[in-house]
Design a protein around this nucleic acid. Structure first.
Lengths: 229, 229
DNA sequence: ACAAAAGTGTTGAGAGTACACCCATGC
DNA sequence: GCATGGGTGTACTCTCAACACTTTTGT
């Protein structure tokens, strides 16, 4: 079957940069390509958009097919359209930015992917296409958003300790935060509530568990409240 | 001539939301469509991407062809890909956000456009496609950026008075700002320099003219300085 | 009792906000 | 001399940033 048009059209793909915090490191989900071009090289999950899906649905589908990952925070990042970005021909990639709680996800290779793995964003292999640029851009976006929104909560389990929350911010922003100031800030923002439970980690004092209070956060957003650390 | 592909491909277009401050109002540049679909309706400047240009180059070209407008601040806004957004078939629009100094621009209809005009963003006609959504999104982006960057300067002449600058912010943000606080803030940021000249407006005390100091602004950006009014 | 992470308060500096009057000019 | 927009200072509040010790637990 073939498709004919009076004017040339580019290919349209969607690619996804999925971030998770694993072992105290900021990781990106990569697949090893199972076919040409760039066969055997690491790349972002992604692929061609079907005619009956939006770019966003395409991003979700490719992610599911290639890595088994579902149920995550997803937002559009940027569209990459350099003329020579794909050796197969003219290609516009709508790139997405995603965050997931690593305790909820098991990445496994599927579909066109020969392998799937979490790799440190600070120690990436050579990537296919212009995917390195896409990751760089996504990291910049993540850091910006971490400073004035609550996206970081998307990378934590439903219940978490303040130390875990602080560690997430430190991993994303790559800078140390003052424990007392951090805790005061989070508590006084009023977007956390204690679950009543505690987490015992090793042999030390157990830490209180908290949960994110979405309702209270909505109120803050309307007032333009910011998170400067 | 026809183009044939083994899989179907969507059309790719670029559309541009150009903002300018004219007569103390925030205006958007629109064209009246000269052909189907939506012939005779107002729409954003834009059109089909050629195979030898990037989406950004396409946005600039269409803008020039349809309205004669060149030399402006342009950044990518968002890609719109709803399945039914174009009655001609599947279409991905890479939308751009642009700002221009209204003293430097003369919009005239050209090419496929039957007319071109600046319309208040607060009183828009019915627009073709999903262009109303695109304008809404662009306005949100403009307001966000106005609060923590210096994009607003892109909408002023090279030399301007502090009152003109304040009026630009007030027009964009749709709220009144305190004159003394605004001036102190701008002066102490160190991103303005006096040109030495003055602007006489009517019969009153002449106002000092200032110029934007890009170099000093770059330093601030690195330190993450913010503009909250 | 000790090792290790959890948890807690105070102070000083800087920025934001609110607010009202004098100045320079052309007619 | 008056009408009009240009231009200026102060006091209060709040948030940020810096900084070190006590508490709880398991072994």
């Amino acid at each position: 079957m073939a498709y004919t048009y009076p004017y040339p059209r580019p290919m349209v793909t969607a690619d996804v940069v999925v971030f998770a915090i694993i072992d105290g490191d900021l990781k990106v989900l990569l697949i090893k390509r199972g076919r040409e071009p760039f066969e055997g090289q690491w790349a972002l999950p992604g692929g061609f958009m079907d005619m009956d899906e939006t770019p966003e649905q395409c991003a979700m589908r490719e992610l599911r097919e290639e890595t088994g990952v579902t149920h995550l925070y997803l937002e559009q990042l940027y569209s990459f359209g350099a003329i020579d970005r794909d050796p197969r021909g003219r290609n516009i990639s709508v790139a997405y930015f995603a965050l997931i709680d690593s305790t909820k996800v098991v990445a496994r290779a599927g579909d066109d992917a020969a392998d799937a793995a979490w790799r440190s964003v600070y120690d990436l292999p050579v990537l296919a296409f212009d995917h390195h640029r896409i990751v760089d851009y996504a990291l910049e976006r993540l850091r910006n958003k971490a400073e004035y929104t609550t996206v970081s909560f998307q990378m934590l389990p439903d219940e978490f300790t303040l130390s875990e929350l602080q560690a997430a911010y430190e991993t994303i922003l790559q800078k140390e935060l003052d424990k007392r100031n951090f805790r005061r800030k989070m508590i006084t923002l009023g977007i956390l509530e204690e679950t009543g439970g505690t987490r015992r980690k090793g042999v030390h004092r157990p830490a209180k568990l908290y949960r994110f209070k979405q309702e209270n956060f909505e109120k803050l957003k309307d007032r333009g409240i910011v998170f400067p650390f």
